[in-house]
Amino acid sequence: MKKLNNKGFMMIEILVVSTFIISVFIYLFVQFRSINHSYQISFKYNTANGLYAVNNIKNFLNYIDIINIENGVEDFYYVDISECPENFIQSTVIEYCEILFEKLNIEKVYITKQDLTDLNLHIKRSQFTPFDEDTKDFIDYIKYDYKVNGYRIVAKFNDGTFGTLKLR
């Protein structure tokens, strides 16, 4: 009669089952992480508060002369007006601009072209941009029409949320 060898059988069995269970859980974890990321984004980007705040920025910019801003965006990919710089904002409304941005809890405001293709390429290629990782992710997230003229407001708020609206 052939001698049965029982050594090592139980260990191999448990190793196989463990590997299977761990693989399943890794898969589930990856899926969960993706869903959680989407959830975080949905409450961080274009919130109701944020959109109305960006609308206030739009109302302010629609009132003043923004030819310098437009020229700045055409020359480069974006213009940063977070500090209400006098080369882009009329001197008579700089104080108003600063107070408005403070009340809106603005951290950063950028004016870009509506078509963000060039800006996205610039961000990917250039090592040195003033955008932090969160802002880069948001700009990458924005859905836009290709080859459409016009400008866009991209705002980052002090609470870490973002908002964007077409300017013209």
Binding site: N49, Y52, A53, N56, N59, F60, Y63, I64, T92, V93, E95, Y96, I99, L100, K103, L104, N105, D159
Partner: peptide, 30 residues
Amino acid sequence: VPHVFNDTIIQIKIPITYPTYDEDFGINII
């Protein structure tokens, strides 16, 4: 501010807090 522009800002802010979060879940109307 020149008369042709808006020169006044009204702010209505109602903060709403929750014990385990640092964030403000309230409103900020401008």
